[in-house]
C-alpha cells in the first residue's frame, strides 16, 4: 500500500473543489465529508447518485461538481457505475477514446440506499469486481424524507417513525462487515470531523483498482436534533466515544486507524442530540444507556490490539 501524502493536517487542501451554493442543510455532516473527499479525488470523476438528500446537489441547472454526475435511482446506483465503467472501457478498447478522457466512477448514496434498497446492487458490483469507489453518507435514517428509521438507525434513537418508548428498537446494520465479507480490495469508515484520517483513506482508495467502499458517518443537524454549529463536535464525539470506529479493511484484515485510548462515555455523545433526549429527560434511562455503552465496550473489547499504523492525533486546531 502506497504511503500517504497526507502526514500532517497542514497538508490538507485549503482551497476546495466542490462548489458552494448547494441546497444541503446548513451544517450538513454529509456535505462536510463529501467536500473533503472531492478535494482528494479530484475533478476527473463521474458521480453516480441514488435517491437521497444528495440527489438535490444537482438541481437543474445548478451543480456543485466540476466533473460529471448521473442520477440513477434509489436501488441501482452501483449498476449505473457498472454501465459507465464498462462503457468507458469499451470506448478505450474499441473506439479510440484517449486514456486522459477516462474518469473515476464514484457512487454516492445515503444510508437508506446503501444499507437497504441498494445493497443488492452493491453486492453485485463488488462480486463482479467493478472498478469503482462507493461513498455512503450515513446519517442513520431516511433524512431526505424527514428522518424515518432506516437500516442504519442506531438502537434507541427517536426517528419520525419511532416516536415513543426507547425509540428505534433495532440495531444498526453492520454494513462495513457485510461489504468486507465480499472481500473487496478496500472498505473504510470515515467522518468529516477527522479530515486527516479521511484524506489518507481516500488517497489510498483512489490508488486501488476494483471495488472500494467508504462509509462516512454524517452528523445531521436536522435529523439528529442539534444546532448546526455542533456538527463537527458531534462527529468528534462519535469517534472519541467509540460509537463510530475509524477503520479500514484491506488485504483481508480490518485495521483500526484511530483507537480512542480513553473512550469518552457514550452518554456525552447521545446527550448532545435531540434524537436521544428521551434517554435523559425527564429522567435518565440508565438501562438503555448501559445497554448502548455495553455494546460499544463489547465492540472495542473484540478489537484486538492491532498494529495500527501510527496515526498522528489531530491537534485541536493549528498552532500557528
Amino acid at each position: 500500500m502506497s504511503e500517504t501524502r497526507f502526514t500532517n493536517v497542514k497538508q490538507l487542501p485549503s482551497v476546495h473543489l466542490l462548489g458552494s451554493g448547494s441546497p444541503m442543510c446548513a451544517g450538513c455532516g454529509g456535505l462536510e465529508a463529501l467536500h473533503q473527499v472531492y478535494d482528494i479525488l479530484g475533478t476527473n470523476t463521474v458521480f453516480v447518485n441514488a435517491a437521497g438528500c444528495m440527489t438535490l446537489l444537482a438541481v437543474y441547472p445548478f451543480t456543485p461538481f466540476r466533473g460529471s454526475w448521473l442520477y440513477t435511482a434509489m436501488a441501482s446506483a452501483p449498476a449505473g457505475a457498472q454501465g459507465i465503467r464498462d462503457a468507458l472501457d469499451v470506448l478505450k478498447e474499441r473506439r479510440g477514446l484517449p486514456p486522459e478522457e477516462d474518469m473515476q466512477v464514484v457512487v454516492l448514496t445515503g444510508d437508506g440506499s446503501a444499507y437497504g434498497m441498494g445493497l443488492s446492487a452493491t453486492s453485485g458490483a463488488i462480486e463482479r469486481g467493478l472498478d469503482f469507489l462507493y461513498l455512503c453518507y450515513d446519517n442513520e435514517g431516511y433524512g431526505n424524507t424527514g428522518q424515518q428509521s432506516s437500516a442504519a438507525t442506531p438502537h434507541g434513537a427517536r426517528t419520525a417513525t419511532d416516536l415513543t418508548g426507547i425509540g428505534f428498537h433495532g440495531e444498526k446494520k453492520p454494513l462495513f462487515d457485510i461489504w468486507a465479507a465480499h472481500r473487496p480490495p478496500y472498505v473504510a469508515t470515515v467522518i468529516g470531523s477527522e479530515p486527516l484520517d479521511l484524506a489518507r483513506k481516500i488517497e489510498k482508495a483512489k490508488a486501488i483498482k476494483g471495488p472500494r467502499l467508504i462509509i462516512a458517518l454524517s452528523p445531521c443537524p436536522t435529523g439528529w436534533g442539534f444546532d448546526p454549529q455542533e456538527s463537527v463536535a458531534i462527529g468528534k464525539l462519535a469517534v472519541n466515544t467509540g460509537v463510530w470506529p475509524l477503520k479500514e479493511y484491506v488485504d483481508g484484515k480490518v485495521v483500526h486507524t484511530k483507537i480512542p485510548r480513553r473512550r469518552v462515555p457514550v452518554a456525552s455523545y447521545l446527550e448532545a442530540q435531540g434524537r436521544f433526549a428521551h434517554l435523559f429527560k425527564p429522567e435518565r434511562n440508565e438501562a438503555v444507556l448501559a445497554e448502548i455503552q455495553a455494546r460499544v465496550d463489547g465492540y472495542w473489547a473484540g478489537v484486538e490490539e492491532v498494529v495500527a499504523p501510527p496515526t498522528p492525533t489531530l491537534p485541536q486546531g493549528g498552532r500557528g
Binding site: 490538507l12 482551497v15 468529516g192 479530515p195
Partner: peptide, 27 residues
C-alpha cells in the same frame, strides 16, 4: 492564528478559503 485548515476544512459548504498568507476568507 493562521492555522491554515480548521475553518476552511470544516466548512461543509466550501465557503471558506485560505489565501497564500494563511488568512481565511468567508464567502
Amino acid at each position: 492564528n493562521h492555522c491554515w485548515w480548521v475553518c476552511s476544512t470544516f466548512c461543509p459548504d466550501s465557503a471558506i478559503s485560505v489565501d497564500g498568507k494563511g488568512n481565511p476568507h468567508i464567502d
